[in-house]
Write a protein that binds this DNA or RNA. Structure first.
Lengths: 339, 339
DNA sequence: GTGAAAGCGCTAACAA
DNA sequence: TTGTTAGCGCTTTCAC
């Protein structure tokens, strides 16, 4: 049995309420008894039972972070950012991994109504574009902030990057580098970020007088073997050099894998740009050109917005839609000079 | 105000206990009233307040995972393993990142006495070899399981890999590949895993009739610039080819970085083996030879042990010390044939 | 400045 | 089978 406020009160011949207040450093308690209580509590190594206290106060001090995956440079770095501000605010971070499974996501979200967490940070999973499970969330009005992968149907603050612009820049760079064709490797068009990046791609194609060829837009889903297959087909048939935009980290590295398998040379045969936060992109062979998102900052920003809402400062200016720019790091994978 | 068991009871003209039991599908409630309650609860979209329930039951349904870092292939994969079993057991995972800071670690551990979590999975941080903060934990006897980076002073179950053997194998391979000297790149010898890997290294050196040269054992700490500096010094001065064992993922990739900076060729000038769980080790230039730990399985194993303890099955055989083998993946970074 | 008492939402004896 | 009651550990009116 752990030690309680009740025991302290009994031992010190005080009322529990007095002890409670003393422990909370209330002004209505004399310095003298405060000291007595504090000292004794210290001596007994007392720690307040958080959940009992929380039951009263109707808060848990926990926030949820829902991500598709944690073994991914972007998400793990974003988690670092979130943790940084949570820690500072004395909040605790519960991690939920959806593994891109919407039914799993749905049950996670459902659980939140049980009051386990005070707020939610979320990057939605791909899969069928059903948002009903998220809609329901609105009923339980616990604060929610989306980061990176948002859900447009839900009214909530979001933190994203300039995905359209990035897609545009990436495409344009590949065109400039003389790619005979440029392909876009997506995951699923159900994802906000993929859609935006794809739109940037399309816009750049059009702006550069190129046709948009649906055969060059691959939506591989999450099944690796499927992606590898369609990518292989594309790479063998396309006129070279072909430019590839890998719209996620996983997809970008798969391009390398497939090229290796097919004995295609990067950047001679294939030129590639990946949306990626890998620290070691520059160590790949050849170094991978990346669009790098400010993952840490995004996590921080999202958490900051969440805490603002938690603290009831909703007053200020409604739903925030923060957009943070990402960086294009040009490296060997796109080839040399412009043509 | 969210909807409570009390309201259901009132509306249905039942006692709260009846409703509570019905909701728990107790056998002492008639099917009929069960249905009534369930239906009504459904209709009202009732969800049990976890923490109120937990306060009674003296459990939270949360476990803590304390890791030095989350943006690291090993830890993030281990977290996946932990999450897999936690999810299945209906537990929730709170993540704590120490950033290799022991004072942070201490305050995290202290917090656990507040009853926020039912159990703890931990991979200790480096830094001064103080374990007092962990010792204290023992007082609050919440179950604890160490994984990967253990703390020998504390009596607790552990899940580790065969670090000594791996260190031995790595060293031996480098010797066989004709390295003129073999260096060990550690982080701090305060870490159990580093110590063991280093011992394996030393043993292999001795077994192969080589001297142990303290200059070849670098403990870089966590300051990247310091590591780079000492590594640069070593690489410029040593007779080549020199073999390097990077005892963590970070250290292994730093070898690549430094070689690039110094224009040294891997594997001609430098041969390297890294303890790493990177999926893309094979895409590096040249592909990195790795000792890969079964991170996912370790996470799973650790969590499984924890839950066993949580369920009070301590009876079985005291403190478990599980050791799982890691795999040596030989790739281009160690050079070609044996000499 | 201190204490008594009610109650957060739920569970579990025990009684009926 | 259902209801009454006490209480988990804490906070917070409201009296004293």
């Amino acid at each position: 049995m752990s030690i309680t406020i009740k025991k302290i009160a009994r031992d010190l011949n005080l009322a529990v309420s007095t002890v409670s207040k003393a422990l909370a450093d209330s002004h209505e308690i004399s310095e003298q008894t405060k000291k007595r209580v504090l000292d004794y509590a210290d001596q007994l190594n007392y720690v307040r039972n958080t959940y009992a206290s929380n039951l009263k106060k109707k808060r848990t001090g926990n926030i949820a972070v829902v991500v598709p995956e944690v073994a991914d440079s972007y998400f793990s770095t974003a988690i670092n950012g979130i943790e940084a501000v949570a820690q500072q605010k004395n909040y605790h971070v519960i991690i939920y991994i959806t593994h891109e499974d919407q039914s799993r996501e749905a049950s996670i979200v459902r659980e939140f109504r049980s009051g386990r967490v005070d707020g939610v940070l979320m990057s939605v999973s791909s899969g069928k574009n059903t948002t009903t499970h998220l809609q329901e969330r609105s009923q339980s009005n616990i604060p929610l902030v989306f980061f990176d992968r948002v859900c447009d149907d839900i009214e909530a603050p979001t933190v994203t990057t300039d995905d359209l612009e990035s897609g545009y820049k990436a495409t344009e760079l590949l065109i400039k580098r003389g790619c005979k064709s440029v392909a876009f490797l997506g995951m699923t068009e159900n994802l906000s970020i993929i859609r935006d990046r794809l739109n940037g791609y399309k816009k750049a194609m059009v702006d550069n007088g190129l046709d948009i060829n649906e055969d060059l837009i691959i939506s591989g889903g999450i099944d690796e073997s499927v992606i590898i297959e369609s990518l292989s087909a594309l790479l063998t048939s396309a006129s070279r050099p072909i430019g590839i935009i890998g719209s996620t980290e996983k997809l970008a590295t798969l391009v390398y894998v497939v090229c290796k398998k097919l004995s295609l040379q990067i950047p001679d045969d294939v030129r590639v740009i990946g949306f990626s936060n890998m620290g070691i992109a520059s160590l790949l062979s050849p170094p991978l050109t990346t669009i790098t998102q400010p993952a840490f900052e995004m996590g921080k920003a999202a958490a900051t917005i969440l805490f603002k809402n938690l603290e009831g400062k909703k007053a200020d200016a409604g739903i925030v839609k923060a957009v943070i720019g990402s960086l294009l790091h040009e490296r060997g994978s796109v080839g040399g000079e412009n043509v």
